[in-house]
Design a protein around this nucleic acid. Structure first.
Lengths: 185, 185
DNA sequence: TATTTGTCGTTAGCTCCCTAACCATCGGCC
DNA sequence: GGCCGATGGTTAGGGAGCTAACGACAAATA
């Protein structure tokens, strides 16, 4: 999340001053918003910088994790279609094509055509990818733990609850991607 | 923040299960981390989509807001150097050159050489930019307010406190950009 | 059976941001 | 006064993600 803001957040007095010029500015809402984005961004960078050392971007990581997760719980053995992957990683299918291209080039996934539906492809993890993930993930998880270490269990629960409220609100405000058969026919 | 994760966050039981395979995975830390990134990302998108309608990316917005803010409080009349802008918006100087290029092309900022130090430039807002900002900002602030509307004042304070703890931790983990004259001479 | 509609994956072209390398200039030091 | 490191801003090149458009195929419809 390249930041929508400044390195040094404005102090609260500045927000109060700005609210005089812009009556729509709610200082406490603005403050919470800015802190949320900054904390999210810094946490993101903290783990991203680690993954980047192994040439894994967030998009690539999402693909690999989706495939890794897929093998657990369900019976299907780790293979997913590009469209399914795009959906799970919240990325367009076009972007997914590019991600799979480079992951395949680097020998981390395989792409085999589906025999039944010849439009489809099946994307699967290679052994090399599994090895890589088991090399990266422990450190990745340790970083998450470190980031949250100053919060005790109760604080974490509180945080998650507050974030959920915000996220629900944000989701409600998002442009409905195709509400309910809102056809114009 | 293109997301480092999936559209549907893993359920807590899945985290518990995964923790069996990866002892370094702290489920509650992981959960808090994922929720933080997702909430931040959705809030980011909520306001970004609005700014995008006016052809304002986060980088451009940061520049414009830095210049707008600069005229208040200090005596200097709205002009900043590219390096200063890059620092405030947490972007590289190279990126700032590109941002200023397009902002200048769109008539939103002016770039005039400094007469005293001939390396420097002074970047200033145009009247067009001020008009645009006053057209965009009220809605921008209303969106922030809407995003936070499900939290009362006390919850917002709590959230900011928790986020501050996390952010301090993240900052401490960040790669020190040049610690303390760590020269290798 | 033949046609339309929808889906899947891909391509082309764009924006944003990054790193690495460059010159020009300033300021201190001999 | 003349080098020299530090600091300006810029350029070149690359990766990631997006939208819009496409051809191939499957499924629904007539």
């Amino acid at each position: 999340m390249p930041l929508l803001m400044l390195k040094n957040l404005p102090r609260y007095e500045c927000l109060l001053a700005a609210a005089k010029e812009f009556p729509d500015l709610d200082p406490s809402a603005c403050e919470a918003f800015l802190h949320l984005l900054r904390a999210g961004d810094e946490c993101f960078r903290a783990v991203e910088s680690n993954l980047a050392r192994h040439n894994i971007s967030q998009g690539r990581f999402g693909v690999l994790m989706s495939l890794l997760n897929n093998c657990r719980g369900e019976s299907s053995p780790t293979a997913l279609s590009p469209a399914e992957l795009a959906d799970r990683t919240a990325v367009t299918r076009a972007t997914m094509t590019g991600l799979i291209d480079t992951l395949e080039r680097d020998g981390l996934v395989t792409r085999v055509p589906d025999t039944e539906d010849r439009r489809m492809m099946a994307v699967g993890l290679t052994e090399k990818a599994r090895t890589l993930l088991h090399e990266i993930l422990p450190d990745h998880f340790r970083r998450m733990t470190a980031l949250m270490q100053s919060l005790d269990e109760s604080e974490r629960r509180t945080l998650v609850q507050l974030l959920n409220k915000i996220q629900e609100q944000a989701a409600a405000m998002a442009p409905p991607p195709a509400p309910l058969a809102a056809t114009l026919s």
